[in-house]
C-alpha cells in the first residue's frame, strides 16, 4: 500500500464515521476533532478500524497525539507491513 492508497483508506474510514463529510473535503491538516467534529467515540471507532483494516495497533498514548489526516498518514506509513 503506497501513501496515496493509505490516505484513501483513511479517508474512507473517516467518512464512514462522519457520513456528512464528503471524501474530497477531508484535508491533510484539518483537526479531526475540531474541524470535523469527531468525538471520543468516533476516535475510538477510527482507531479500531485502523487496527482491523490496516493491521496497525496504535498505542493510545500515540493515538491521542494524532490530530489530523496528514499526521495519521505519516505515522502509519512506515508501520505498514
Amino acid at each position: 500500500m503506497n501513501r496515496n492508497e493509505l490516505r484513501t483508506a483513511l479517508i474512507e474510514a473517516i467518512v464512514d464515521i462522519a457520513p456528512d463529510l464528503s471524501p474530497e473535503e477531508v484535508s491533510d491538516d484539518a483537526s479531526l476533532r475540531d474541524d470535523y467534529d469527531l468525538d471520543s467515540m468516533d476516535s475510538f471507532n477510527l482507531a479500531a478500524e485502523i487496527h482491523k483494516s490496516l493491521g496497525v495497533n496504535i498505542p493510545e498514548a500515540d493515538f491521542a497525539k494524532l490530530q489530523t489526516l496528514g499526521e495519521l498518514v505519516t505515522y502509519l506509513e512506515p508501520r505498514l507491513t
Partner: peptide
C-alpha cells in the same frame, strides 16, 4: 495501554 483499540474504554 495494554489493550488493542477495540478493547479500550472511554
Amino acid at each position: 495501554a495494554t489493550r488493542p483499540p477495540e478493547q479500550r474504554l472511554l
